[in-house]
Design a protein around this nucleic acid. Structure first.
Length: 190
DNA sequence: TATGAGATCAACT
DNA sequence: GTTGATCTCATAC
């Protein structure tokens, strides 16, 4: 049984709207703990909801750097959320990792999260970071280097698309992508 | 099932 | 001083 191909950094050097749907079904692990990406959202610097919309700041500096790196920020003062930077040339766009289907290191994730139900381990951007142990220490880290591993999907899954979650600006644009029928989404698509 | 409050911080007005 | 790419727990229906 052949190992799935590792995603190269080039993969991210394209429009977020091309990268985001293709990430669905890929496998992400951090230190051997992780699972299959089932939900992401796309953010572009022309998008009022994006952190990079108003230009470069200390917090979002990674978004203005090369693609294939992680942008981690603190959400609501207490959570971490992780994005993958896309498109070079300072387009400052990124894909928000919103949910995984846990497949590896379930026990570690349960311990970090303090819950046992698999469904609650990674079904949300902050839960995902907590389960995988992602913090601001990983801000600016490359996804193709340890402790990260990212493997391309084996087959093309069925993708569902809808409006993004939890934002007030540009809330209507359908830039949320999910794996059809997955039980591990942060919220169902309609 | 649904709605609301609290946690807690950095960017922005 | 307000807001936000969130989650959890409590209380109400």
């Amino acid at each position: 049984m052949p190992r799935p191909a590792k995603l190269r950094r080039d993969f991210f050097n394209r429009s977020v709207h091309a990268v985001a749907p293709e990430l669905i079904g890929a496998t992400l692990t951090v230190g051997g703990v992780g699972g299959i990406i089932v939900e992401v959202e796309a953010y572009h610097h022309t998008d009022p909801a994006a952190h990079s919309y108003r230009g470069r700041t200390e917090r979002n500096a990674v978004m203005f750097g090369p693609p294939g790196y992680l942008y981690v920020y603190r959400s609501y003062g207490i959570h971490w959320c992780a994005n993958v930077v896309c498109e070079a040339d300072g387009s400052a766009s990124a894909v928000l990792l919103r949910a995984l289907e846990p497949t590896q290191g379930l026990d570690v994730m349960r311990r970090r999260r303090g819950v046992s139900e698999a469904r609650l381990l990674c079904s949300g951007p902050a839960r995902l970071c907590q389960a995988l142990g992602i913090t601001d220490a990983h801000n600016g880290a490359a996804l193709d280097r340890a402790p990260f591993s990212l493997y391309a999907r084996a087959a093309t899954p069925e993708i569902v698309i809808g409006p993004r979650i939890g934002i007030t600006k540009a809330a209507e644009v359908p830039w949320r992508y999910g794996l059809k029928g997955s039980r591990f989404l942060s919220k169902p698509f309609r």
